[in-house]
Write a protein that binds this DNA or RNA. Structure first.
Length: 291
DNA sequence: AAGACGTGGAG
DNA sequence: TCTCCAAGTCT
């Protein structure tokens, strides 16, 4: 049926060990799945759970969100991080209403065309919401493939062509099986084949894992540089936006000036937020979330 | 095609 | 405390 050597073991493992996440339930709408995928970008499941519930309760369909100003999406996003995702979700909702009659599109190209929807998210929604046959290549899958197939501890910094080709070569032929296999290998990376301390004893494909068989050699190459945060523009942007989020209406410039004492950096961060459409400078000199 | 882009929990 | 990292995307 396919050349995937551990499909059966992986599927069985998933059957027995998958988390009961709300966006995986059979009654989850395509919209709710899209929302979950955007929220989960670079953000842990535990923090997404409550945000996802609140979001869907307020905006059960794309049209509900599209009917509100983008600033409300940013406010609702709260402290999930990367607030441009809220803007993208709002813009996606508008596009879905305008171009797709209010229904989340089902094909990869249509999904990929939505703002904030890249290769991973388009494949994930097409697969998880619509049962399409697409290779899922997120950080979990990339790590599993790096270990099981390539025999190294960590995947390359950025996704490569060969990783995509490997993932596609492993895809079960049947679309429904492929969709299930996609979540399964992702779940394996999230629960067992983790970044720091993989639980190889619990791994259904341990006997075929190239990295384990090689004695789990440590990562070879330059250290994976951690992202700095303290003192960066990102931190300033975060503080600036928090003031606007926590305020009912427009705020005077003084309130923004108070969050950071270095004026050059502060102005640069504010200008960038305005350029990104996350902050709306008003004629009276005050600032607000976009209306 | 490196680097920017938030936030908070775990070890 | 400090580093790492969590279902990426965009420029």
């Amino acid at each position: 049926m396919n050349q995937n050597p551990y499909s059966t073991a992986l599927l069985a493992w998933y059957q027995a060990n998958a988390r009961d996440l709300p966006w995986r339930r059979s009654d989850a709408s395509a919209w709710s799945i899209l929302v979950s995928e955007i929220m989960l970008q670079q953000t842990p499941v535990a923090r997404v759970l409550p945000a996802w519930e609140a979001w869907l309760q307020r905006w059960p369909a794309p049209a509900d969100l599209a009917a509100e100003p983008p600033g409300e999406a940013v406010r609702m996003w709260n402290r999930l991080g990367y607030p441009r995702r809220a803007l993208n979700l709002h813009a996606s909702a508008c596009a879905i209403v305008e171009r797709h009659g209010g229904e989340v599109p089902s094909t990869y190209p249509e999904l990929r065309a939505l703002p904030g929807v890249g290769a991973y998210t388009a494949a994930a929604v097409a697969s998880f919401a619509f049962g399409g046959r697409h290779a899922i290549l997120d950080t979990n899958v990339r790590r599993v493939l790096a270990r099981a197939h390539t025999g190294v501890q960590y995947p390359p910094k950025a996704p490569t062509r060969s990783e995509t080709e490997l993932a596609e070569s492993l895809l079960p032929a049947d679309a429904a099986v492929a969709a299930r296999w996609g979540v399964a290998i992702m779940e394996l990376g999230a629960l067992v084949c983790t970044a720091r301390s993989p639980a190889c004893a619990d791994c259904p494909i341990a006997s075929q894992c190239a990295w384990r068989l090689a004695g789990k050699p440590a990562h070879d190459g330059p250290p994976r540089r951690a992202q700095t945060y303290a003192g960066t523009d990102r931190q300033v942007r975060g503080r600036l936006l928090a003031v606007l989020r926590d305020s009912e209406g427009p705020v005077p410039k003084d309130a923004l000036d108070a969050v950071w004492n270095e004026p050059i950096q502060r102005e640069r961060a504010l200008d960038a937020l305005v350029a990104d459409g996350l902050v709306d400078p008003r004629e009276d000199g005050t600032y607000a979330l976009p209306g």
